[in-house]
Nucleic acid binder design. Structure first.
Lengths: 269, 269
DNA sequence: GTCGCCAATTTATTATGATAAATTTTGCCC
DNA sequence: GGGCAAAATTTATCATAATAAATTGGCGAC
């Protein structure tokens, strides 16, 4: 197997002819990646322990630690202490990947319009794709999410909770996708909107129309998916997105978000 | 400004009630992120130097170094040695973000169909969006990319170069987008296909139909964009994607990719 | 015999200090 | 003034030691 991880250290295309001399931790972390792929290691497998790595790569403890920290930051490993402990290969948590991506967009000044331009085409595709393989178990999960906003909110706090729950409906949809790319992208877009909802106060003003129409659309969507009609699901979702986009456009133009934390926690504003 | 970076350390939702006790480097790196946002620092600005950080956070040299290594791995900073050196805030390079994402999908077994399912909806949207704001300068860039494959390939090597150039056409398109999300997602999908082309040998067999139809579609696309007709551009791109998807589907089912390197270099197979 | 607690071992984590490498700045000489 | 060389500054690496965390295994009580 010639599979290799993607290298992440300093770019080789610098201003001067400063050749890319990756520092030692980077070299070691890349070597560990190669070791992982060459041995065909899978999530759950354990890497050699620190002293062994020190010997294997002839590097100091500090260097090995920095290399492991790089892999940990990339989400590739997690470390545990105690007997039998060490660095374990992990399937990168989606939250972690979301956080990484979110950082990338920090200086890009995303607007709500940018987000909805993509959602408007991805979510309908997702709806159509899900129709092929969703079962009653999944529909039950979706419907249980919807009960949170099947009624007008009594308080401003409930209003906020309902907005989040509405977004979680879409998060669930994404998780159910058989296409990992579609799942991640749709989930990421929702996570952008959720952070928005928490960190900023876009969803502050009451917006009964958004809730009502959202609930109605989602009901129709489940119906269409139950009926096994992908094109109906697609067009319902499309209408849902177009409507949501229009309603959201009034709220705020620029999304001034913050960096997301790599451990999944959110920081209130 | 209350903007905050996304945290990336160990998850708080563990099997046991093991409360999320992030280790010191994680805490410090988060604190540095907060410092960055609180001070409204921008790419190019320099962080305090190691000794100052050691004092500021009352942590050891090793801890600070690991924290900085985390930020570097996330693409948030780069460090330089020498006088006036230190850690500098960087706009995360797209290559870096691609590599990070690519790692996420390592264990997900993406298929070509997965990639094209998304391209089929995103690329048309991109085409329509570009029509609004592309000028002659951009068209010239696109056309100069196309000359690489305006003729049948003479050798197997040229065949491969042409495939890559064809993908670079789409890469350019993505770069021109005014929507950073659209730009990244389309660029990422192409980078997946490019890695495919290099690391695996999907594009090995000659496929004259793919080149010819691709060239023709792209010519029509530029024409439509020049004419300022977004819907024409959209439908041309859609047809292009549908055709490419069909042709690619025959090639290989599963994309057995490797981890990508964080410094933008590729590793041949 | 089983459950729960305590101690010992293994491991990561943090800390400190010293040396090396790299780069920029400065100053000198031509 | 231009170019080369030495010096100063800063990160990078290494080495060593002490501390904290977590699991295992054994011991005792029930």
């Amino acid at each position: 197997m010639s599979a290799v991880f993607t290298r992440l250290d300093k770019s080789g295309a610098d201003s001067k002819s400063r050749r890319a001399v990756p520092n030692r931790p980077s070299v070691v972390s890349e070597a560990i990646k190669i070791m992982m792929t060459d041995k065909g290691m899978m999530p759950g497998d354990r890497l050699p322990q620190e002293p062994d790595l020190i010997r294997a790569f002839s590097a100091s403890k500090g260097t090995i630690r920095e290399a492991l920290k790089m892999l940990e930051t990339q989400g590739l490993i997690q470390t545990r202490t105690g007997p039998g402990g060490g660095a374990f290969i992990t399937d990168i948590p989606t939250d972690h990947a979301n956080a990484l991506m979110s950082n990338y967009f920090f200086f890009k000044n995303l607007s709500i319009g940018d987000i909805y331009e993509i959602r408007q085409v991805l979510e309908p595709e997702l709806a159509a794709e899900l129709t092929k393989h969703l079962g009653e178990k999944e529909f039950a999960v979706l419907e249980s999410t919807m009960v949170a906003y099947d009624h007008p909110p009594a308080t401003i706090k409930e209003e906020q909770r309902q907005r989040i729950a509405e977004l979680e409906f879409h998060e669930r949809l994404a998780e159910f996708s058989a296409n990992p790319l579609l799942a991640f992208m749709c989930g990421f877009l929702v996570s952008l909107l959720k952070d928005l909802a928490v960190c900023r106060r876009i969803y502050r003003n009451p917006n009964p129309e958004l809730r009502e129409r959202g609930y109605s659309y989602q009901g129709q969507l489940i119906e269409a998916m139950r009926a096994g009609d992908p094109e109906a699901a697609r067009s319902i979702m499309k209408a849902h997105m177009v409507a949501a986009r229009r309603l959201m456009a009034k709220q705020e133009a620029i999304v001034n978000r913050g960096f997301l934390s790599l451990n999944g926690k959110k920081r209130g504003a």
